[in-house]
Amino acid sequence: MAGFVVRRLLAVVGVLLAMSVLIFAIVHILPGNVAYAILGEYATPGAVAALEAKLGLNEPLSVQYWHWLAQMLHGNLGQSLSMDRPAAPLIAGALGRSAILAGMSFALVVVLGIGGGVYGATHKGRVSDRTLAFVQFLFIAVPDFFWAILAILFFAAWLHWLPATGYESIAEAGVGGWLAHLLLPVAVLTLGLTAHVSRLARSSMLEVLESRYILAARAKGLPERLVLYRHALRNALPPAITVLAIDAGILMGGIVVIETVFAYPGLGRLLVYAIEQRDLPLLQAGMMVVTAIYAIANLLADFSYALLNPRLRHGRSIR
């Protein structure tokens, strides 16, 4: 187990390092001079030279990379060009707001997804299961930005129940106003992923219910409740956790889109802003932060998988 933890941690460090090279390379090597990309096609050579000097673009790429990496390791994420401010506090603020959105959605996805999966598996073939399957199919097939538009259309434009876009802190608007702005984005983010998780949880649960040890548990005369929750769920959860880790990534992607639709000032919106404004230092920093968060999420999934899997926890055999 200790070896497993160390191995996974080393792998995360490796991925982050490699990703920093990749992000740096894409920003600096792809066709299109950085300074021109920032200033536009019709920039004067003088302006380009001035900007290149400011950004340190005259130095060799390897030096630039080492400089950038060293700064990052010291917690300095660079300077936003478009806002002319340090990137770190910008990202931190946006990250906090995104975390609220993501945290709420993810908690709902875990609870509703696994709950829905178990329900579907235990009611296999009945009308309720089939209805659920149809609704899930719709939520998976339809893109979340379209759900977002529909939600704004109904609840904001027509019914005027909820604000269409924006964000207000608890300090500004109280808990009610804060929640009102979160409700639609959280709902849209949750629905598609819940459908995904519960479908996979359902099939994983069904597969476990077919296994011989469930037959044996029933032959022992255990009540169905124990068979389901002690014997079956314990084995169906690890695959569901793998799915949840993948979905954490989809969620992070979804946040970019949903924050854009709802004009929610989070990290996703900031990244899209950085691209629109060609604010490359901010983009680099933001991407590194996202990579780190995703790597940590995967690490946590691996660890909880290992905790639920006795083969990894107890390796040695008994003679």
Binding site: I26, L30, G32, A37, V256, V272, V290, Y294, N298
Partner: peptide
């Protein structure tokens, strides 16, 4: 390495500069 970024973000990164 490629799957260590969520799909949309990888797409964003590839498309960001040009």
């Amino acid at each position: 390495l490629l799957i260590s970024l969520p799909p949309i973000l990888l797409g964003l990164l590839i498309l960001a500069v040009t």
